[in-house]
């Protein structure tokens, strides 16, 4: 039982990381109908920004955090203008390739600027964690779970109760209709990219104290987050969160009770099962009949 509780906590913690990154995928997918293969690199770049500001330049942690997020907002905007926007009228394939190119570019530019050594970024808390009954609670995981929950709540409020949120929703559902209603679709897409980059950045900075800051950190998480997105149903925010958490838990328990080396395989087996038997995901709507 102790074992189960500990695995559950860890699974939810790692799942929350997937969920955070998956959130960025979903937002961009809903706004543009393309998958951003560079989403993981947003997390990586933000973590390196944080190392630069908080560790190398020794800024206060909160200031560095705020500045890193501003940096991510700028990156999101530039990304939209160079990688997505010029291709907006083309099919999804060129956009996929373009985001793959961007991912190679971001990873290796960071490498060129920062060198290959992984770095340590301390967490928000001085104290690494505490024991709660039989379970060791890692403070950073706890923070990630809390922040993910808060972001989801915030996002729900934003989309359902603000005008901008509703405009964004309208844009993601039907671009033509939205533009007929006088919504500036390009502005909405810009906001989406900026927000996704910031969310990806938050995920990267939060997870850095656990996984360390390395060039590869983005790619590893992004692939899992991707799977989470599918499991949850592409284009559904709640689905991405549940998908992420489910994946984290399945993976952790799979590793504990089936096989550690095949741990990464569980994510994809679950994914394939979903795609074959329930392609609409846990929450997604039925794939519309084409006519």
């Amino acid at each position: 039982m102790d074992l189960v509780l500990q695995l559950l906590f860890t699974g939810i913690g790692i799942g929350a990381v997937y969920a955070l990154v998956a959130l960025g995928f979903v937002l961009i997918f809903r706004a543009t109908n393309v998958v951003n293969f560079a989403q993981g690199e947003f997390s990586m770049v933000a973590a390196f920004l944080m190392v630069l500001l908080a560790v190398d330049l020794e800024w206060p942690y909160w200031l560095a955090f705020a500045a890193a997020l501003v940096g991510m907002a700028v990156l999101g905007a530039v990304f939209n203008l160079t990688v997505y926007y010029p291709l907006r009228h083309r099919t999804y394939l060129p956009v996929i390739i373009s985001t793959i190119g961007a991912s190679i570019f971001l990873a290796n530019t960071t490498l060129a600027l920062y060198g290959p050594q992984p770095r340590v970024l301390s967490g928000w808390f001085d104290n690494p964690g505490f024991t709660l009954g039989p379970v060791y609670v890692d403070n950073q995981y706890l923070l990630i779970i809390v922040v993910t929950a808060a972001l989801v709540a915030l996002q729900y409020w934003f989309f359902e109760h603000t005008l901008l949120g509703k405009k964004l929703q309208a844009t993601s559902q039907d671009k033509e209709m939205a533009s007929l209603l006088g919504i500036r679709v390009s502005t909405m897409i810009m906001i989406t990219f900026v927000y996704s980059a910031v969310i990806g950045g938050i995920a990267g900075i939060l997870v850095a104290p656990i996984l360390f800051v390395s060039i590869q950190m983005g790619a590893t998480i992004a692939l899992k987050a991707f799977a989470a997105t599918i499991i949850g149903g592409f284009g559904d925010v709640a689905g991405a969160i549940i998908g992420g958490l489910a994946l984290g838990v399945i993976e952790t328990f799979g590793a504990a009770y089936v096989s550690v080396p095949y741990k990464d395989g569980f994510a994809f087996l679950v994914l394939v099962a979903f795609l074959i038997f329930r392609p609409q995901g846990i929450f997604g709507e039925r794939v519309a009949e084409k006519a």
Binding site: T82, V83, I97, S98, I100, G101, A102, S103, I104, F105, L106, A107, N108, T109, L111, A112
Partner: peptide, 9 residues
């Protein structure tokens, strides 16, 4: 590799 990525875009 960064240049390569940019070239792809």
């Amino acid at each position: 590799l960064a240049i390569y990525g940019a070239a792809v875009i």
